[in-house]
Amino acid sequence: MASAAASDPASRRPGIARTVLSADDITRIVSRMAHQILEKTSGGASVVLLGVPTRGVPLAHRLAQRVHAVEGVDLPVGSLDPTMYRDDLRLRGVRPLEVTEIPDGGVDGRVVILVDDVLYSGRTVRAALDALAAYGRPRTVQLAVLVDRGHRELPIRADYVGKNMPTSRRESVAVRLREIDGADGVLIVSPEAGLTGAAADPGELP
């Protein structure tokens, strides 16, 4: 298992971090996204939320909690690890595998909403779509992300976006959630002057 620190770009790379979303911002955004999900899926009918580890999983649970608070329905929540379907496995050392937990009832004929923290190149989502196919054939697959930072490399877009955040490729976006990191917040980390080379591998957040 990757420790939280190892997968947190803010602690991995030297640079200047600025907070762009506070804990309250995240709470409001998650609440809005839950409403949007209810609106677009007619009250959450046959919806299954699947979080992409690591931070997509607590986000999926938060969305389910908000949906429950608003509409009183309990959406099944699970996790889907796309690691073994990635196209960039050979570009770096072995990645640790995360948990895949498909809720009872499966995904066949359901409206599956993939939940991730940051949408960047789109490659994680592509891998997740392949991983999902191994577990069944959903009626529809949708995508919910807390932050869309642009720079797509594949024809993928999100159905629910918490915050559009224009960034430079040299910057990295660090989402922190209290379930994993102890506190909520979204930071943009810019490389320090003269250290631009260190950001040669911007890396999509896991």
Binding site: M84, P96, L97, V99, A134
Partner: peptide, 18 residues
């Protein structure tokens, strides 16, 4: 731990990974 994840693959309807 990795084997534990691999064991879950056997539960998927498609038991093959690329």
């Amino acid at each position: 731990d990795t084997a534990e994840r691999m064991a879950r693959v056997a539960e998927a309807s498609v038991r093959k990974l690329p």
